[in-house]
Nucleic acid binder design. Structure first.
Lengths: 224, 224
DNA sequence: AATTGAACTTACATCCGATGTAAGGAAACC
DNA sequence: GGTTTCCTTACATCGGATGTAAGTTCAATT
């Protein structure tokens, strides 16, 4: 059962969409206040967001951008204007589909199920500079190929990615890799870091891990 | 530089599409005979296929199906009829986009670049019933999670998937797993097959591997 | 239902990649 | 220059994946 969040201010349309989606077997949530929409949306942890462009307070584009920054949820955009610039805009912001009203029921449903299918298995991916990482398997996707990282290297790069760009203390890394209770073996950590750097280099990644003296480590992009 | 193969029988339209795509920085190939279209298309190893539905000899749908069976190239379908059934049909066959003529130039280009973007890093995935398999890492994507298969199990499931549904001889499987020159150890193969079945079951996959007495093995979907 | 070959199961041995350990070397900071 | 911090290398160990062996179940044929 997939969850869909409908973001639409006109109650009539919202009701219609909801009932249609529910009939098709989706679990539907909606947002009623439009103050802090993105958080509201993400609270229901939807598998997909159906987003109207013309909303009070904030433009749909803005919401789309925020959603894509904070999460990797797929977004389908609805609009009443058939404007190419809107579409261009939307897709550049990372929207996954773009439909103009009046929509045909079946077509909308089709597009939705299509987007969902496309996203299958992608919910565990986190994004790094120029690559994707699967948090479950530590599979690294980079320029059309994929490689599996050894568990420890995967854990390290994951914790570094979570604080993208900011430094992470050895302590934090150790906790991620071996669990908090254990004694922290500085050396083992060191060796694993070296190994990670080596694999990153051998993959020609455009980023690497650098030490911040006395503080910890961080990921930095490197320009050639 | 991405390569696009344009499949369209009307010369005028074909020319127009080609020049448009070339202006946008794509390398365009076309097919002139319509006898063995799919092989012709794949010979140019395109990054995307732009496919007209109404063609001599074979329907565009048929071509789409064959393309998707033999490869994982993305397909964008063009049609002059604005028929929802066509669209449904096309998307079920695995088409990635569907556009009705007359198309707006910019919109078509947008969709194409979008599909290409979507495929980045996905070229190693092959589709099975209810799951995806990364051919490089043997990572299995299934209901929103991912698991890494042991190499041998991965190789076996890969060769079975290539002939989706059809039986594959032990010989073929052995060649895939150990290479053709080696002596084929029936027993080792047997054990690995058992292991694969076990992992598939433990993942609650809706398909399994069955023996075809005297012939080999095949993947079948199982209804509960 | 007895036979027979095909298909399967289980337990154990081996191997190889991933990880940990140890000791010494380079770099940055004062 | 001395000290601290960070890094490198080689080797030992461990565990999951694979191979091996022996025996059991299944199903087609008579």
């Amino acid at each position: 059962m997939k969850r869909i969040c409908v973001v639409e201010d006109e109650e009539l349309v919202r009701e219609e969409l909801s009932s249609m989606l529910e009939k098709s077997g989706y679990i539907v949530s909606t947002v009623d206040s439009f103050d802090d929409v993105t958080s509201d949306i993400l609270k229901s942890s939807p598998d997909l967001v159906l987003l109207d462009i013309n909303l009070p307070n904030m433009s749909g584009f803005q919401i789309c951008r925020e959603l894509k920054n904070k999460s990797s949820v797929p977004v389908v955009i609805l609009t009443s204007r058939d404007d190419l610039r809107d579409e261009l805009n939307a897709l550049e912001l990372g929207a996954d589909e773009f439909m103009t009203k009046p929509y045909r029921k079946e077509r909308l449903l089709l597009r939705i199920s299509n987007v969902l299918k496309r996203y299958e298995g992608r919910s565990n991916l986190i994004e790094g500079p120029g690559f994707l990482l699967d948090k479950l398997t530590y599979t690294l996707y980079i320029d059309g190929t994929s490689v599996i990282l050894p568990k420890n290297q995967g854990k390290i790069i994951e914790v570094l990615l979570r604080k993208r760009g900011e430094e992470v203390s050895r302590q934090e890394i150790s906790e991620e890799v071996w669990g908090t209770s254990e004694f922290i073996d500085e050396n083992a950590l060191q060796v694993n870091l070296t190994r990670l750097k080596k694999t990153m280099a051998s993959l020609n990644m455009n980023c690497t891990v650098v030490a911040v003296r006395g503080k910890g480590y961080k990921i930095v992009e490197l320009e050639e």
